[in-house]
Design a binder for these strands. Structure first.
Length: 223
DNA sequence: GCGACAG
DNA sequence: ATCTTGTCGC
């Protein structure tokens, strides 16, 4: 569990070096069971004014989208939030939650960016590289990149998110009249599949079921 | 130098 | 992320 950050020396500057190095191991091609049978949803929340990090992991049946197991892990927060270095703050708790699930999912959705990141290693990509599980990043806001200013207000509409000429993700209207999601592949998932997968597992809410359920647990708004 | 900046 | 009730619009 300490291998998630390689030989990181603990500094902010070195964290960026580690990210660039780990991004080298990303495989952006579909490499997961089709159709997947088990989906995983991951998200993090905080309590005690941020002193405690709370990670939620949910395992769902991909066919019914019903959760079959869920885990909650609480750890003392070890690092402040620094844009671009989110995984160094939240990944440890997420990995522990993953281990508690009855078995590993074969496709994972993480709340946050995949490769739509300055060094192409958002938390979803980082999660995928260290676990070697297929991952997709589902964020609510853009961290880096630009896209068309207008997007059809129809469920399923999408437009590329680019950094220069390179496409790093998609702006996806998962639900009418709701701000679009920022979807990007993490590991072992292609750019084209990332958006399709998110839509496939989205019902009537803005967020796809895996991430929506994990969100509810991590944010204590569960019932 | 001046903004922007996942959760 | 988190602190928080009502309220406008579909």
């Amino acid at each position: 569990m300490t291998e998630a950050f390689g030989d990181w020396d603990g500094s902010i500057a070195d964290a960026r070096r580690v990210q660039a190095e780990l991004a080298t191991r990303l495989r952006l091609r579909d490499d997961f069971p089709k159709p997947p049978r088990w989906l995983g949803g991951f998200d993090v929340g905080f309590e005690d004014e941020g002193a405690t990090t709370r990670a939620a992991a949910v395992l769902l049946d991909a066919q019914t989208l019903e959760p079959i197991a869920s885990e909650l892990v609480r750890l003392p927060t070890s690092m402040p939030y620094v844009p671009g270095l989110l995984s160094f703050r939240e990944l440890p708790a997420l990995l522990q939650a993953l281990r508690l699930l009855p078995h590993a999912p074969d496709l994972v959705f993480v709340d946050g960016h995949g490769i739509a990141h300055p060094r192409r290693l958002g938390i979803a990509a980082h999660f995928g590289v260290v676990t070697d599980l297929p991952t997709v990043g589902v964020a609510k806001k853009v961290l880096t990149g630009t896209s068309a200013t207008a997007l059809h207000d129809m469920r399923g509409a999408f437009t590329p998110l680019r950094d220069g000429r390179e496409q790093i993700g998609w702006m996806l209207r998962s639900k009418p009249r709701c701000n679009p999601l920022v979807v990007s592949p993490g590991h072992r998932v292609s750019m084209a599949s990332a958006a399709e997968l998110v839509m496939r597992y989205t019902t009537t809410y803005r967020l796809p079921e895996p991430t929506r359920l994990a969100d509810r647990l991590a944010s204590r708004r569960d019932g």
